[in-house]
Amino acid sequence: MEYLLIIVSAIFVNNILLAQFLGVCPFLGVSSKLSTATGMSGAVCFVITLATVVTYLLNKYLLIPLGLTFLQTISFILVIASLVQMVEIVLKKVSPGLYQALGIFLPLITTNCAVLGVALTVVTKEFTFGGEAHMLNLGEATVYAFATALGYGLAMILFAGIREHLALSDVPKAFKGLPVALITAGIMAMAFLGFSGIV
């Protein structure tokens, strides 16, 4: 039940893109075509989940015992950067097909603030899923990260679908491109507000 709450909350209620504004740059950058949006979402899903697990363990078994939590930001970003590199290399060797699909998006992910954002949120924020306020344990953190990434993918793919249509419609000149995309995102965010309060 608690996991279900985490999932619904992370995908719909606190959608990472439309409610928390993490990872908006690539959201606007690669969402003009449905196929690239799908690829990016897949890569983000993969990296967010992996990075959160690794940084969670790093934080719990290295930084906290050594009293070095002030190094969270710097160590997390280094872990994420090397992880992305490693995933790229491994993927290339092990699954060329998947690499073809996700490969070009991987280098972009290091500077996607959604990854660092989720990793930091998980180790610094208390949650109230299932009653009391508590820090997430590893299982919950993993589910939270994965669900958040799914929410990212959902918003991204929906948005890309809309933008493909926008590209064909007659938009006033000053609105063309990003402005109308942002306004569309605003309307989507409004729709997602409707989910608030259900968890």
Partner: peptide, 11 residues
Amino acid sequence: MAPGAFIVLGY
């Protein structure tokens, strides 16, 4: 709230 941010920046 969130929607306003997107809409204001857009306009």
